[in-house]
Design a protein around this nucleic acid. Sequence first.
DNA 1: GCCGTTTTCGGCCCGACTGTTTTCAGTCG
Length: 605
Amino acid sequence: MSTNDALAGVLHEMSRMIELLGEDQFRANAHARASRAVSSLSEDVRSLVKEKERLLAVDGIGKKMADKIEEYVATGRIGEHEELRSRVPAGLLDVMSIPGLGPKTVRAMWTTLGIEDIPGLRKAIDDGSLVTLPRMGEKAVAKIKESLALASQGDERVALGLAAPLAWVIVERLRAHKHVARAEAAGSLRRGKETVGDLDFVVALKKGSEKHASEIGELVSSMAGVSNVIAGGPTRTSMRIALAPGSKRTIQVDVRVVPLACFGAALLYFTGSKDHSIALRTHAQKRGLTLNEWGLFEEKAWRKYHATREAHDDDLSDVPDSLAGAEENDVYRALELVPIPPEVREAQREFDVKKTPRLVEVGDIRCELHAHTNASDGVLSLEQLIREAARRGFHTIAVTDHSQSSTIANGLKPDRLRRHIEAIREANETLGKKLKIRVLAGSEVDILADGRLDYDDELLAMLDIVVASPHAALSQDGTLATKRLVRAASHPLVHILGHPTGRLINRRKGLDPDMGEVIAAAKEHGTALEINAHWMRLDLRDTHVRAAVDAGCDITIDCDVHALEDFDNLAFGVATGRRGWLTPERCVNTWDAAAVAKWLKTKRP
DNA sequence: GCCGTTTTCGGCCCGACTGTTTTCAGTCG
């Protein structure tokens, strides 16, 4: 785990413990906010504490928080954290992590029944003592029991690439309904986060169809794979659905229904992030306005409406006129803000921009620079690969099979690579010319544990393109990893540093180098850093991309193609790039053929 | 504990839904 993630975890825990102790809620919120700010930092806190002003410039980090962060970096602990821990039973945090159980309820369990952990909670359910708590009835206990059963099957966030296909199916189903005017997936999926906790959908009904709101929730909750419906109101339905047909793994799905005039405001709010939404609402509040999922309103007008709303709460047709609400961008403009793309809505500097950034888009991508054939561990023949790349309109396809050390991946020994180069050059002359696509002879060469490359320089120099990636020794020490990657990024024949950390989302932590140093080396030597678009990798990750973009590095977005469908992972790589504020100019794959060729030459003798 | 185009003190986003209540507290996103 990176230092940033570890620190964020400590701050989050502090926030939860402050809540459990029933102390100042705003202090708890401040710690939670600081935790989120730290986890979305593009820089390692270890370097940030050296320049305190820049640490203090981070939204949500003030003087006291900066001191705690400094203490953590210096000693690996925060005294106040340990003091809190001594006052709160460790198992109580597990209890509070059960959906439906918040700080007030868990505190009551603790102080009146002596419950200190999940076994204690189970016991209190069984012996009937739990139901004696205030505001605790049979239904509430049943819900807790259900949550307990669910919690044991694991609640880790779902990789973007596993959740997205289900989201697409649901959006299509919603859009096909006769009363639906618009439907979009929102939440962290829309923001392109590498993992998502749940799926959010915003649906607008056609004018005159407002009475049919309740049909929409039923439309989704009647889908195959729905295991239980958690809540179902006229405008909001929550349920759990199997991630794939037959899969035991489920994900929470929330569907919100709004009138068409409110669609933008609802989409804005349910896209988040939480901190971005809070910043917008605070901004509105200072202007005597109120922003909610129904639109942007004069505060007085909204209050008057809302006070009378209960009488007709299943009727969505009478929301008062808003200052903005139909489109997200209208809301930003009405607040005198620049519209912000979803992927960078993190309340981290996006409100400082003077105009909407033009971030890289899938349609900008014009070449693929990292692809395997059946010469190593791909399933496509050279011809199939070239045809598919051409079919997708690419001007260049790089054939980069594995190098000799990757024996499991059938890596090529030097002799075999020489013959492979000839075959690729031949294909470039024949099929490439015919399909108007340039075929590059390349290699994804292993970066050995000490930073040396897996072929000698003479052989590397014969290749049109070299992607250098780590594949083994992925649990080595951070300092060694930094040296290793810096050495590879500084190599005069390397064009691209491929999936630099080697992490696999939810499965393998990968290397933990000082990315600041790696980025600096890449910048100095004109080496591009790869965003590997496979949803299991997304490596560089979003925060690394942002640091690299800030440093002025070139970035590639590569599908690391092994099979036809891998080309479709591009959207995930692009989303990660966008989260890192990547513009087309800095993204090599958006350049025209001549510019890419010229760039490749700069790294050849 | 953070923060400032009202403020260095005194605020702190806002609504839906549930289950428990006869008017609301707690949780969630």
